[in-house]
Design a protein around this nucleic acid. Structure first.
Lengths: 197, 197
DNA sequence: GTCTATACGAAGATAGAC
DNA sequence: GTCTATCTTCGTATAGAC
């Protein structure tokens, strides 16, 4: 699962300490989500990870390298997700829409963090998000048949991501009311998939 | 129309020079759209407006004041747009969706610029965008009747904005292919509004 | 592997001349 | 109203000790 780091050869127990490299990426994600792109300085990330700036720079030689590390983690997580979505019991669309709003999982957090980066003209962050969208769209198209319908559903997913995360920095996680709204939304979307072209 | 600046009392002709204050806001918008939030420094904005940093700071005492000026302009432009959308010949939904992707008008540019700002934890930018969304959603709800359908349409609009502007910094304006895709999308959306709840 | 200290440049803001 | 210094703080990165 932790594709971004080599598996330790002899983990004494499953409670083995998280490698510093991963802790730093966790800290980067946390700062990006909670305080935005501008606040994600080397100082702030190092402090959040519990290391010094010098310590951070040992693991990631520059800020760009740090960002690249996060994007690599995101791509790995998405690879797993694409497998999950194809075999989702409630269907591809249900899975996609529900996970567009969740905010809890490592994947959600990685996406939101990279989306924050993408606004600051990080070309590789934009590229990664565009690639991911393409992968999801392909799966939805495969599931619903009609490309136009797939695009509309994908746009709703984009809108949910934008609304639930980017538009409201520091918002609390999914609440009960949101869950009801999500059910209602899925009902509306069914009207798109029920009828053919 | 230019609600953000007092009308000159004696404009010799309609070619009267644009006030420096407005030129500075234009420059801020241009830099935000073309180069992102981080690039929108006082130096860069001043250069784009053709004034010195000191000159800029005469009109806007601080960077926060500059941002507030842009947000005030956006709110004024949206006020006009809300009037337009209610009387749009092709209908509210058609107008909303089409203008979600345009990118050419002063309003579009102001929205994209403020959206860039919103990612950098500018609370007032987020607040303004949330307010605007609420106004549009109210109009759509009024037009289509069902709140769930209205929300789905609004999310598609959000997705279009995200896709066409935030996700692709420095992308060219609406192309021919986009226009066809938009028509197809409107066809899909009609399936939502055609059927009742 | 992790730390402290320091160099260097960039960005916001002030002061005062014109 | 607009300009040119100048000050200060912050962010990235390097050097070298431990």
């Amino acid at each position: 699962m932790a594709l971004s780091s080599p598996a330790p050869s002899t983990p004494a127990s499953s409670l083995a300490a998280v490698p510093t490299r991963d802790r730093i990426l966790d800290a980067l994600v946390a700062v990006l989500i909670d305080q935005g792109e501008r606040a994600a300085t080397l100082d702030a990330v190092a402090a959040a990870a519990g290391v010094s700036k010098g310590g951070l720079l040992y693991h990631f030689a520059s800020k760009d390298a740090l960002v690249d590390g996060l994007i690599a983690r995101l791509r790995a997580l998405v690879g797993v997700d694409i497998d999950n979505i194809r075999s989702a019991p409630a269907g591809v669309v249900d899975y996609l829409i529900r996970t567009s709003v969740s905010e809890g999982t490592p994947l959600d957090r990685a996406i939101v963090a990279v989306a924050r980066l993408a606004q600051g003209s990080h070309p590789s962050a934009n590229q990664a998000l565009a690639d991911i969208r393409r992968q999801w769209l392909a799966v939805v198209e495969e599931a619903v048949g009609d490309p136009g319908t797939a695009e509309a559903i994908m746009l709703i997913s984009d809108g949910l991501y934008y609304e639930s995360t980017l538009a409201h920095p520091g918002a609390p996680a999914t609440s009960g009311q949101d869950a009801a709204a999500l059910d209602r939304l899925l009902g509306v979307i069914e009207r798109l998939t029920a009828t053919g072209t």
